[in-house]
Amino acid sequence: MIVKELIPLIEGKLVCGDPDSSHQMKLAFASDLMSDVLTLDSNNPLLITGLCNLQTIRTAEMADIHVIIFARNKKVTEEMIHLATQHNMMLIETPYSIFRISGILYKHGIKPIY
């Protein structure tokens, strides 16, 4: 799945990154706990989270994550966008809950890590 296919499924708004990106998303992980995200061995999962601060972006940088979905209307800050841009990340805001996003993506073929 590419970002252009993902966005309408979750009423998402891409706030950082290229809307025409061909980056393929196959795996996802949902967590608000960044230490949990840092234990992942999988390469390049997409992250669904309710934690919206600079350390979310830092964690994604260290864990080689390039797409982050922020659930329940969490607003990404300019500082986060600045850092995410340096690492070619895509940041998506959505009004949906983590549970709802996860269900929709699962139904559309995105696989869980565990």
Binding site: D32, L33, M34, S35, D36, V37, L38, T39, L51, N53, Q55, T56, T59
Partner: peptide, 16 residues
């Protein structure tokens, strides 16, 4: 904890 850390996973994860 608000920053997404502090769950007692850091040192074991470093060790791993």
């Amino acid at each position: 904890r608000e920053m997404g850390f502090g769950a007692g996973m850091g040192l074991p994860n470093i060790r791993k």
